[in-house]
Simulated scan of single mutants.
Amino acid sequence: MKLGIVGATGMVGRVMIDQLENLNFPSDELYLSASEKSIGKEFFFRKKKYTILSINELLSKSLHIVLFSAGSDVSKQWAPKFAEMGVTVIDNSSAWRMDPNKKLIVPEINGFCLKKTDKIIANPNCSTIQLVMILYPLHLEYCIDRVVVSTYQSITGTGQKALNQFNKEKEGFSYYEDEYEKIYPYPIFQNVLPHCDSFLDNGYTIEEIKLMKETKKIMNDKKISITATSARVPVIGGHSESVNITFKKEPDINRIYEILSKTKGVIVQDSPKENIYPMPFFSHGKDEVFVGRIRKDYSCINSLNLWIVADNLRKGAATNTIQIAELLIEKKYV
């Protein structure tokens, strides 16, 4: 099995490499690629030295699978070239997510729909993945009518430059007086920005639109009403979501607990009297999605509130990508 990673030096790419190091992933040969400034740099993987290649060099390696995490522009330019050569591409950018001819996959939910002919497979947005991991099993039982979600998203979702800005401000640098690279329009340290990605003419951000559209595609139900508000918070360990769900059937809280407790990849943390609930502090470095604060919404019929947390670099990106690759290998599609 020949595996390639495009964007190997980025935050998600590095997590992919770390996870592959600890998994029994059947890769005989690994090839790493990144931006031009990283070409020639060296990495160690399973006690072997690897050199960062150009993406054009990667194209000549007769790969079986290539994992992309280098942004939409790179994916749009290069993913089709790999696919034309018979290589299966799993892309972590937004380039192909809403393409009607491409699958948008969370293995636990819709991995069954993959086929050997799928050569470009989209990995969903980080905040979408953790949301649908909770919504989908509940939808099967009670049929979701409407979702209202507010996200509190880690600075790591913006990338290394955001983390650099946070660290500078934490060290005491003044956003308005000192010269350093700023990725956000305001300070992020000790602040919350109701602003994830760019604003559109309708007042929503691109991140909010992703949440709304991707959720419907993954769950294969366009009738679900969903609205979202996304905020950037000075947190490193993961994304948090406050979610209000209205069902078409009356939900039973005990049954909700039972369903989520039995859902693969989900951990229920819900004992408020003992101060047990999901937090990025505990999700950091873990692959599961954590859910808690599960309670009835007494203001609306057939409704409940809950709180979801997951490490956005792991299940929200690298883990889900690798799980798709593992599923393809299991099905003998590569």
Rank of each mutant, 00 (worst) to 15 (best):
S27K: 04
I329Q: 05
I329Y: 02
Y257L: 08
K161D: 14
S283T: 10
I253Y: 00
G4P: 02
I276R: 08
F281S: 15
T117K: 14
V289T: 15
F281H: 13
L327Y: 08
L59K: 12
P80K: 01
K115Y: 01
L304E: 02
G172F: 06
S174A: 08
Q323T: 11
G7V: 12
K49S: 12
K262Q: 15
R46W: 08
N125Y: 13
G157V: 00
E179N: 12
G238Y: 07
Y175F: 15
T88Y: 02
N125T: 13
D221L: 01
K103N: 10
E29Y: 09
Y184A: 11
L327D: 12
S69A: 15
K47V: 01
I52R: 06
S283G: 00
K249T: 10
E250H: 11
K76W: 01
I308C: 10
K61D: 07
L304A: 05
G172H: 06
S261P: 03
V15C: 01
D201L: 09
L53P: 11
F44Y: 13
T263I: 07
K296R: 14
T263V: 09
G172K: 01
N123R: 08
E250K: 12
I322A: 05
L163N: 12
I301Q: 11
A317Q: 10
F82I: 10
I322S: 05
L304Y: 05
E108Q: 13
Y176V: 00
F43M: 04
G111I: 04
P185Q: 10
M212D: 08
E141N: 10
K115M: 06
S150K: 14
P272W: 03
L260K: 06
L200W: 01
I155E: 02
L135G: 05
E179W: 01
G285M: 08
G316V: 10
V192S: 13
R46T: 00
K168S: 13
S240I: 05
D252I: 11
L200K: 04
A79H: 06
L138I: 03
S38Q: 09
A162R: 00
G157S: 11
F45N: 02
V147N: 04
I129L: 05
E171F: 05
T156D: 01
N125S: 15
I134Y: 05
V289Y: 03
K315L: 11
F43P: 05
D221A: 02
